[in-house]
Design a protein around this nucleic acid. Structure first.
Length: 684
DNA sequence: GAGCACTGC
């Protein structure tokens, strides 16, 4: 961050500064303005008819009736997501079954269902319903079903041809989440299979907000692409004249340049990469805002990122006081998940923090990198939701041109073990050659299958990969395969009650709340739960204490426990327990004998084991790479000979997080062949 | 003695 305190950067930039230049005319980039619809008093029916999509309805229906596959490009505000399902239903298309509309996010599925139910004047859960994890608001009457894409994927395990459905609408396809990408293949296979078996055909409609749909069309047998105009307002794009070496400095300068020139009611949204730099820039902005020249209005700076408590996230929706400008510093949460009205200016640093995956090491790395062109347009679009807007890109037009067109689909950036297991549970005959729209590398696929083989979920027979009985059970849990495996092992150690809780704790965001300013208090409060057996048992102690006080909020505050995440843990635990019992497994508690819990984890998580070396460092046993105990672990000060860990985090070093103390013998027992050649130290 | 973009089953 800039430290030039004697001369606030804002003063360096007079109104009309030449920091930016306007983009050259780019056809198709400045989107046409289409009618206005800000009248909140008009009836729902009138509102529906005012949507841009309404005029296209007859043609659209004509096309959709005939086509088996269609790609639909609809700009923001076209109304496609709420209207298409209704049009189909009203026209009697796909009446023999349900119409599914998938969404990448829960909130979207829930709110869209609510909106459409309102438009149809029915109670939510009747004609129109939704299904997301932990919540199923549908009934036998439901015909239009909004759901998360992950939910449809889960349903497909029990019904690979998706026979309940006659139409599947895959919305927000341009986001290319893992779930959507797997669904592409699943619906395509279901279509073909239904055709072969002379079943009712399955219509698939892929909806995207971006123009890059060649891949979609090609994949779905060259299906036609239909365009829908939106109600996006024109956005003026500016680029910097020179490349910026310090995007944070550039963002700061731009905020104050706009602040000095624009009317105070025009809010600013800045896209940045993470919590730390957002909080730092927020502090700097507030400092500078205190010393602005006369005549310059005030500003309120609001950080926005996912780990912020909900109450603080809501601040972005509160209008600023009259004459005061709202400046929102946000991560990419504001690209899709959070929509803020009143944004006139977007400042795009051009950077994003994103996960990368190395199949060789199995290591995921979170790194700051350039956005894609599609992402840059998505960000710019946030300025034109109610009226025309401006987007200031903190990079040159040449730099923009050199950006990759689309973000690499997540399926090419993640560990595929869970995906491959799910595909096999769906009965896909040849998973190694699954028809992915964007095929992951063969190394990534091979490494995932090898991983599943080591867990005993699959076996290779004559070049064929087959699901084992264990693998089938593993797939029934909504968990990473190694967690599912650990749960399935737990009856052998008579500690399933505890394993179900710990796995639930490990599979949600941290339940530990660590405000840096109250570090000593946190340490003191946590001390009473700390176990020398490691983080797993420590978490278990916290969970047991939480249950003892029935989730008392005051207790959570005193003990620095995130009660929202803890409630989620309870829901996950209940779900896992239900699946566990359905498999007719014996649910027992080990009471205070937590050694059993550690044995079970050693057995289930042996792929994530590390060994203490003579020089005091650690080596991961599967890859032989140097790793270290993360300072947040309760085992940080100690030097156990063997541990299993939950995940590796690559930052300044390669850190193991969430550790469990284990014996070398246990690891050997878990996988004698695998460790026969890897363990150094003889038995103690 | 460190630091976590965002979803989702």
């Amino acid at each position: 961050m800039p430290h030039n305190a004697d001369f606030p950067p804002a003063k360096k930039f007079k109104p009309g500064s030449v920091f930016f230049r306007q983009e050259k005319n780019k056809p198709g980039m400045l989107l046409p303005r289409k009618g206005t619809n800000n009248n909140k008093n008009v009836s729902i029916d009138v509102q529906r008819k005012q949507l841009p999509i309404h005029q296209a309805k007859p043609q659209l229906l004509n096309q959709l009736r005939q086509l088996q596959n269609a790609i639909l490009i609809g700009e923001t505000g076209s109304g496609k997501t709420t209207q298409i399902p209704q049009y189909l239903y009203e026209a009697g298309i796909g009446r023999q079954g349900l119409i599914a509309i998938t969404q990448p996010r829960r909130v979207a599925a829930i709110s869209l269902a609510g909106r459409v139910a309102e438009e149809k004047r029915t109670q939510l859960g009747k004609l129109v319903g939704y299904t997301v994890r932990f919540e199923d608001v549908t009934s036998s009457e439901t015909k239009l079903k909004f759901m998360t894409d992950g939910m449809l994927l889960r349903e497909a395990i029990g019904d690979p041809m998706l026979l309940r459905y006659t139409v599947v609408v895959l919305d927000e396809a341009h986001e290319r989440t893992v779930h959507t990408d797997v669904l592409f293949g699943v619906v395509k296979a279901a279509q073909r299979r239904r055709r072969e078996l002379n079943k009712v055909p399955l219509k698939v409609i892929v909806m995207s907000a971006t123009m890059d749909v060649d891949l979609f069309s090609e994949y779905f047998n060259k299906s036609p692409v239909l365009y829908l105009e939106g109600r996006q307002h024109p956005i003026q794009i500016y680029y910097t004249k020179q490349p910026q070496s310090d995007y944070l400095q550039a963002a700061l300068v731009s905020v104050f340049q706009i602040h000095q020139e624009a009317p105070p009611s025009h809010d600013i949204l800045v896209f940045m990469t993470g919590q730390e730099e957002i909080e730092a820039l927020a502090r700097t902005c507030r400092d500078i805002a205190k010393h602005l020249p006369d005549g310059c209005g005030s500003m309120v700076v609001i950080p926005l990122y996912a780990s912020l408590p909900p109450a603080q996230q809501l601040r972005v929706f509160q209008p600023a006081a009259k004459g005061c400008r709202k400046v929102i510093l946000s991560t990419n949460i504001a690209e899709t998940s959070v929509t803020i009205s009143g944004i006139k200016y977007v400042i795009d640093t051009g950077m994003v923090k994103a996960k990368r995956f190395n199949p060789d090491s199995g290591l995921e790395v979170l790194a700051v990198q350039r956005v894609s062109k599609a992402q840059a347009w998505q960000r710019a679009g946030r300025a034109g939701r109610e009226d025309s807007g401006f987007c200031y890109r903190l990079y040159t037009e040449q730099e923009f041109d050199s950006l990759i067109p689309m973000t690499v689909p997540e399926i090419q950036r993640c560990n595929l073990a869970g995906v491959m297991l799910q595909l096999m549970a769906l009965g896909i005959p040849d998973v190694m050659n699954f028809d992915f729209m964007s095929k992951p590398s063969s190394e990534a696929i091979r490494s995932a299958v090898e991983h599943l083989e080591l867990l005993g979920a699959v076996e290779k027979k004559k070049e064929q990969v087959l699901l084992t009985a264990l693998g089938k059970k593993m797939a029934s849990f909504p968990l990473e395969p190694r967690y599912a495996k650990t749960i399935l092992l737990s009856p052998d150690y008579a500690c399933s009650e505890e394993i179900l809780s710990i796995v639930s704790l490990l599979s949600v965001d941290s339940v530990l709340y660590n405000p840096p300013a109250r570090r000593d208090e946190v340490l003191a409060a946590r001390k009473k739960f700390t176990s020398s057996e490691g983080d797993h048992v420590t978490l278990l102690n916290i969970y047991r204490a939480f249950k003892k006080v029935s989730g008392n909020k005051e207790w959570c505050r005193e003990n620095f426990v995130n009660s929202r995440n803890m409630s989620l843990v309870k829901e996950v635990q209940a779900q896992l327990r239900e699946i566990f019992l359905k498999l007719n497994l014996k649910l027992e508690s080990c009471g205070s004998d937590t050694g059993r819990v550690r044995r079970c984890f050693a057995h289930g998580m042996f792929l994530n084991a590390a060994e203490l070396q003579l020089d005091g460092s650690y080596l991961a046993l599967n890859t032989h790479q140097p790793v270290a105990i993360h300072p947040s672990s309760v085992l940080f000060q100690s030097k156990p000979a063997y541990v299993v860990f939950n995940e590796l985090l690559h930052t300044s070093r390669c850190y193991m997080r969430d550790l469990c103390l284990v014996d070398a013998d246990w690891l050997l027992d878990a996988a004698p062949e695998y460790f026969g050649r890897k363990l150094h130290i003889a038995k103690s």
